Simulated scan of single mutants.
Amino acid sequence: GEATVPKVTVITRKAYGGAYDVMASKHLRGDFNYAWPTAEIAVMGAKGAVEILYRSELDQPEKIAARTKDYEDRFTNPFVAAEKGFIDEVIQPRSTRKRVARAFASLRGKRLTNPWKKHDNIPL
């Protein structure tokens, strides 16, 4: 989180909760954040979230399955994250190398300094 080097992230699969945040996300000053269309970006996985939110319906598997599908459709796709500004762009897997190379080329002269502090407070 305190690195001053260029930070480029490509989310290819699952990025949930705090693990997503600390992996060079926009929340920790990541420079470029891309995601593949298959990426899942959410607070937590659909199954776990539904089991917490709708625990009173756990004895009804059909309802739970429908709620899980709804959660996946509404929250775990990268387009929702892109809409909110957490991802710069949803890219096709075949263009990943070109996009990452272009991002690093644009960051070649990046200069960033953190304020001096006696003791660091890395995000834990």
Results as ranks from 00 to 15, higher is better:
W116E: 09
A39K: 04
K69V: 07
E57Q: 14
K110C: 06
E89A: 08
A82G: 06
P115A: 15
P115K: 11
K69T: 05
V22N: 02
F104Y: 08
M23V: 11
D31T: 09
V22L: 12
K63D: 12
R108L: 06
E40W: 07
Q60G: 03
R108E: 08
I122P: 08
G17S: 12
G85A: 09
T9I: 05
A39Y: 07
R97K: 13
R111W: 05
G17A: 06
R97F: 14
D70H: 03
V50W: 05
K26S: 04
H119V: 15
V80S: 02
V80I: 13
S56N: 14
H119A: 14
I41N: 03
N114T: 10
V5P: 00
D59H: 14
R99M: 15
R55M: 08
F86P: 00
N121F: 12
I87H: 02
L53S: 06
K110W: 06
I11H: 07
E51V: 02
F79M: 06
P93Y: 09
A82M: 13
K118T: 14
G17I: 00
A82N: 03
D70C: 02
A3F: 05
G17Q: 00
K69E: 11
F86C: 00
I87L: 09
A46N: 04
D21Q: 07
D88V: 07
V43E: 12
T4D: 05
A81Q: 04
N77Q: 03
G109H: 13
E62A: 01
E57V: 09
Y34W: 10
T96A: 15
T12G: 14
E2F: 09
A49K: 02
